[in-house]
């Protein structure tokens, strides 16, 4: 009796083992090894940056860049404080132009896409072609004209000088305004295309039903199309916010100097920790993380809607 039960237990154990080993094939092992390798590959620079940002000069000299500071005395958060102090005005400036131009891009792009997709009029395709062409205009091609346009022809600072006496307004807001307009104009084509791809899938009969229900072109947009494109707005918010926040060339062209009161976060970051004595790596790393934080925050805020929008 007992012998028999032992053999059945053994058999059960063997089949269980077999089941486990059955699942593991060479292909699966390879797949997971590759995946883990890729995770390491992508995370290593971030991890190196993070550990570097909290090292003292001694710590920096005595450890590999990707290793954490091994001695408690080598750890300091001072650089984060310094970087934050340097970057804070830039972060405010960046917010001041990124948020308005992101919102403007989304609203104007969605309206343009509506007009080009769901409203019927002659010459639509020609106008659409202009928008598409706008996507492919390289930044380098517009830098010189852009600089001349703002500094010679528009001169917003001088023209709006009557405003700067008002409370809460400062002369360097003219530069911020220039950046808002530039980023909005540059972002509209791609945003229009994104919205258009969604609007093309919208039921034509639904739009027609709304028109027959007595809604004007504007009311159809306001009450039908706009509420239905909220997920796409999330996609555009994340996409445009990241683009404009990280943008450097326009900042360099329009703002010019790191010392300008309108200097953006990216512009200040470019000079952070650079001096004649050498590069302050911990400071640069801390600065980079601080500058990247808002884009992460935006992604977290809109992640749900973003997933919905990407599906459409």
């Amino acid at each position: 009796m007992s012998e028999k039960s032992v053999t059945t237990e053994e058999a059960a154990e063997q089949t269980a083992m077999k089941r486990v080993t059955d699942g593991i094939t060479l292909g699966r092992v390879g797949l997971y090894a590759t995946l883990i390798g890729l995770v390491g590959f992508y995370l290593l620079p971030i991890e190196s940056g993070l550990v570097t940002s909290i090292k003292t000069p001694t710590g920096l000299d005595n450890t590999f860049p990707f290793l954490p500071p091994l001695d408690a005395g080598w750890i300091t958060f001072e650089k984060w404080q310094v970087a934050f102090d340097y970057l804070a005005p830039g972060m405010v400036n960046s917010m001041l132009f990124t948020i308005p131009s992101t919102i403007l891009c989304a609203i104007l792009g969605s309206m343009a896409a509506y007009g080009l997709t769901l409203v019927d009029w002659r010459g639509q395709i020609a106008v659409l072609a202009l928008f598409i062409a706008g996507i492919f205009v390289p930044y380098q091609a517009v830098i010189v004209p852009l600089f001349q346009f703002w500094s010679q022809y528009m001169q917003l600072g001088a023209r709006l000088s009557f405003l700067w006496g008002l409370p809460l307004l400062e002369p360097h807001y003219a530069t911020i305004l220039e950046l808002i307009i530039t980023h909005t104009a540059y972002g509209i084509p791609i945003v229009t295309l994104l919205f258009r791809s969604q609007y093309k899938t919208m039921s034509n009969e639904m739009i027609e039903a709304a028109r027959l229900d007595g809604a004007s072109v504007w009311r159809v947009y306001r009450r039908i199309v706009l509420p239905l494109s909220i997920p796409m707005f999330a996609v555009v918010f994340i996409f445009q916010f990241t683009q404009i926040w990280n943008e450097f060339l326009f900042s360099l062209t329009i703002i010019g100097s790191t010392n300008d009161p309108a200097a953006s976060a990216t512009l200040i970051l470019s000079g952070l920790g650079q001096s004649l004595e050498g590069t302050d790596y911990p400071l640069r790393m801390a600065g980079a993380f601080i500058t990247a934080l808002p884009t992460l925050l935006v992604y977290v805020l809109f992640a749900d809607k973003f997933a919905e929008g990407v599906q459409t």
Binding site: S203, M206, E208, A209, R211, L212, I224, L228
Partner: peptide, 20 residues
Amino acid sequence: VPAKDRDIAMVFQSYALYPH
């Protein structure tokens, strides 16, 4: 006369209800 001013109601094959 534009569709919106014709005082005509239509029922579509796809129903065309406003999903939101």
